[in-house]
Nucleic acid binder design. Sequence first.
DNA 1: CTACCCGTGCAACGGAAGTGCATTTATTGT
DNA 2: ACAATAAATGCACTTCCGTTGCACGGGTAG
Lengths: 138, 138
Amino acid sequence: MKEIEQRLNENGVRPTAMRILIYKYLAEKEVAISLTDIETAFSNADRTTLFRTLKTFEKKGVVHQIDDGTGVQKYALCEPGCNCELEQDLHLHFHCNNCDETVCLTEHKIPHINLPEGFVAEDANLVLKGICDKCSGQ
Amino acid sequence: MKEIEQRLNENGVRPTAMRILIYKYLAEKEVAISLTDIETAFSNADRTTLFRTLKTFEKKGVVHQIDDGTGVQKYALCEPGCNCELEQDLHLHFHCNNCDETVCLTEHKIPHINLPEGFVAEDANLVLKGICDKCSGQ
DNA sequence: CTACCCGTGCAACGGAAGTGCATTTATTGT
DNA sequence: ACAATAAATGCACTTCCGTTGCACGGGTAG
Ligand SMILES: [Mn+2]
Ligand SMILES: [Mn+2]
Ligand SMILES: [Zn+2]
Ligand SMILES: [Zn+2]
């Protein structure tokens, strides 16, 4: 509880009640979360607030956005001290075709790719799709 | 012209006038194309027709869909004899943050990734973002 | 020639992201 | 403690894109 407030403060995000709740929600879930997920979980709050909270979190480096190819934006908490912006720190994501959940595989960094002449990479996104550990029965 | 008809026939797609035009359009452009792009190019035709044409092309293996993280679906012609479905044949895509175009780098296959226990990969999507060869001045 | 299938067109729907503005809540200076 | 100010929240509305239902019409096959 107190740690959350501290974490938000460190990142320059004012720890309002709502934001703490959303942070806690993100922390409990071990999967990437969509705006609609949060909207469902906090049906009393307004969608715009939740939307802007996520955008604030993203801008301040509290969460990173995930594009898993489903067409809906997902978010997950950043590791403490992570540098999502830097190309070297980009991890891959896994989307399960069975349970439809997306998880961060923070241990698995995106390998460096040699590009043709003239191409300069600044960012990368690698998503693997298949069956997750929960759904594969193992 | 005749080759296009043949190509479509080979893939089980009836070569209507519209479809041939769309195929030709995709072939001329060297970049990934969105439905809106096609809609703009063929303002006389109906959006639905174009949409379903792309979906038909995709189902029959004439084009593959590309998710470049912009939020809009793009499409590009498949290489003759490509096996987009197979994991081994997946190439990466490059999205230019300057000109906003997305290109296939068909030579660059997505490297195989060792996943944690229980995860089974069936598909992969790797998108690099940065500055393309045209925009980097080289 | 006729019946049918499939491509095309028109209209409408639904989900999701995003914005402008009013209102409430928190923060700061006096 | 109070006023002035800034930030967060809520409501309404919009736009964009993908998608579907249904009706029409031209080509294809029997
Ligand atoms: Mn992640
Ligand atoms: Mn491609
Ligand atoms: Zn799963
Ligand atoms: Zn470019």
